[in-house]
Design a protein around this nucleic acid. Structure first.
Length: 323
DNA sequence: AATGCGATCAACCGCCGATGT
DNA sequence: AACATCGGCGGTTGATCGCAT
């Protein structure tokens, strides 16, 4: 990793502001130790000595430095090798939700809010999928935003029969798709690419700072083909306009022949057109069979084309949400 | 100034699927 | 086939903030 990145560590940590030191934090320094073994049936032997709760600045720096120098790998190994008394999951979460340098900070822009609303109408509570469409934003962030701000606003305005889009000031309940695209392009320009959308083979070293180490060729994706470029010799698939949900599983079961994207678009377009009436009377989530039921869904996201859906997003009404 | 309470958000929990042994 | 491990995900918790009273 480049020297300048190492020099940026203090700055990156500094940029996280005061929240790093205990704002909205759980109690720090919880430790699953030997003395606790007798008190809990849930503590596994390997959890002995694992810290929980607040991440100290020192821990953040350890993890950040390790990620910079070694890159991503097995999170359990990362926790161990970085000298952190944390479980791998905790390290992963900390990195994804907080330390990743391509994270945006600050409040959601109105465009981002619109996009979240729309994507939620399509995807339901699939926060990670929604986050994949909002470069620099995390699923946790979006989930928190939804559960606090949006739910509240929708509830508050439901009495006055305002749609979710009107709640956010979008006329006709439909945000122009080109506006959404522009918003996504803007996001991409600042963060280049969502890490979610990178496909790596087992032996490929993960680059934790793709936006700093790659100079991307931007695609003209405004007129329809929001292409997934396969220009990367490492085998990375990257989408430079809309981060693509399909980038991870667009291939068929044999991982050989790519699915015909256009036929998928057409298929979905037909669904949209033919079912407009139904859609207007139904929950989008119900129509597509993936409500808030994270696991075990009948239809995997990668098996249909969201780009087509995004293009046809105007077919969807603004459903009255029920919570 | 003190208190109550809702909002915010980082982090944990538990589950699931994939993968390895 | 059975089990263990791991990564990923959505749901939930709980500490803190900030505003209202």
């Amino acid at each position: 990793m480049t020297t300048h990145l190492k020099e940026e560590i203090p700055e990156i940590l500094q940029n996280h502001g005061n929240s790093i030191a205990g704002k909205h934090m759980r109690k720090p320094d919880l430790m699953v130790g030997k003395d606790m073994m007798n008190n809990s049936n849930n503590i596994k032997s390997k959890d002995v000595g694992v810290r929980k709760g607040l991440w100290s600045p020192e821990e953040d720096e350890k993890l950040l430095r390790y990620m910079i120098s070694k890159g991503q790998g097995c999170w359990s190994d990362i926790a161990r090798n970085a000298g952190l008394q944390r479980c791998g999951k905790s390290c992963r979460l900390r990195w994804i939700n907080y330390l990743r340098p391509d994270l945006k900070r600050g409040a959601f822009s109105p465009q981002e809010q619109h996009l979240i609303i729309h994507l939620h109408s399509i995807l339901g509570n699939r926060w990670s999928q929604i986050a994949a469409r909002l470069p620099g934003r995390t699923d946790n962030e979006i989930k928190n935003f939804w559960n606090s701000t949006v739910k509240k606003r929708l509830k508050t305005n439901s009495d006055s029969c305002e749609s979710r889009d009107q709640v956010l000031g979008c006329e006709n309940g439909i945000m122009p798709i080109n506006e959404l695209m522009t918003m996504c392009m803007d996001s991409s320009s600042t963060t280049s690419s969502s890490m979610h959308d990178m496909v790596l083979t087992h032996d490929q070293q993960f680059d934790p700072f793709p936006m700093l180490t790659n100079s991307y060729d931007m695609v003209d994706g405004v007129d329809g083909d929001y292409g997934i470029l396969e220009s990367n010799k490492m085998g990375l698939e990257r989408d430079f306009s809309l981060p693509s949900l399909e980038s991870r599983s667009i291939e068929n079961e044999n991982n050989s022949a790519p699915i015909d994207v256009k036929s998928h678009n057409n298929h979905f377009n037909n669904i949209c057109i033919n079912n407009t009436e139904q859609i207007q009377n139904s929950h989008v989530e119900d129509l597509f069979g993936f409500g808030n039921h994270g696991h075990g869904e009948n239809l995997r996201m990668g098996e249909w084309d969201l780009e087509g859906l995004m293009q046809d997003i105007s077919y969807f009404p603004s459903p009255n949400f029920q919570f």
